[in-house]
């Protein structure tokens, strides 16, 4: 089972250049990655993400995400409803996908307009992000997608919001052979090996000069993106 590590490398306001070039240089010099952006088998990443927040207490988030390399549909996710958990503010609550809407002007855009105009009492828009300069590359068992996040509107018109990096580790077939308990043990071993491999891959890039980097590793790629893109509370 593939494991995904996601990183958000913030763009410090005091720095003129984006972390993107620094990360790309490290990828090419450290791992000699091969660029797949021109290949038809791998799609360079692009995304459109809206973060909304409930104005009431306890606060919740609503995220509307279009991430075509992982889902052809628009993904709508929220943190759990207060009625289903102790009513305390928990900004770290994991977002859960609650519905999927076919992409397109008549569907997902209509839905977004509906939320913004007719559910405005329940949800307030906090941030709109898009991705530019998306690239995809491969090195051994790793597929790397990355691009620069830009804020749309809200006074920060097209302001750089750092770089998002997705590293997917595709498990060696040896990890999934066997059955029953053996298979579960192998899967657990595979997860551990995958997490270690992903962490080692990122450490090898030596990105220590960039502060505030967030990391999410797991088998749920969409869930990881939803967490990493929540740049505001």
């Amino acid at each position: 089972m593939p494991l995904t590590a996601l990183y958000h490398v913030p763009h410090p306001p005091s720095t003129a250049t984006s972390p993107l070039s620094s990360i790309l240089n490290a990828l090419y010099s450290t791992y000699s990655v091969s660029d797949l952006s021109a290949s038809s088998s791998a799609t360079p990443p692009t995304l459109f993400h809206r973060l909304l927040r409930s104005p009431s207490d306890p606060q919740r988030h609503l995220q509307i995400l279009f991430l075509p390399h992982l889902s052809p549909d628009t993904i709508v996710a929220t943190t759990a409803h207060p009625s289903s958990q102790p009513p305390t503010l928990n900004p770290n609550a994991k977002p859960k996908v609650c519905l999927r809407i076919p992409a397109g002007p008549g569907n997902s855009e209509t839905f977004t307009q509906l939320v913004l105009t007719k559910m405005g009492t329940l949800w307030q828009q906090r941030q709109v992000l898009t991705m530019v300069q998306g690239q995809v590359m491969k090195f051994g068992d790793f597929v790397v997608r990355l691009g620069e996040l830009r804020q749309v509107g809200g006074g920060g018109e097209h302001a750089g919001r750092g770089v998002a990096v997705e590293v997917v580790w595709v498990a060696d077939e040896g990890w999934s052979q066997g059955d029953g308990q053996d298979e579960r043990e192998l899967e657990a071993d595979g997860d551990t090996a995958g997490k270690e491999a992903l962490s080692a891959f990122w450490s090898g890039l030596k990105m220590d000069q960039w502060k505030g980097v967030r990391e999410v590793i797991g088998s749920d790629g969409v869930g990881g993106w939803l967490e990493i893109l929540r740049l505001r509370t």
């Binding site: 929220t78 289903s84 609650c98 209509t110 559910m119």
Partner: peptide, 19 residues
């Protein structure tokens, strides 16, 4: 008026998520 199709989603869970 707005009619928006939803894909593979349980209607009760979907609407609970939206509040």
């Amino acid at each position: 008026v707005a009619d928006i199709p939803i894909v593979d989603s349980d209607p009760i869970t979907a609407m609970a998520g939206l509040g």
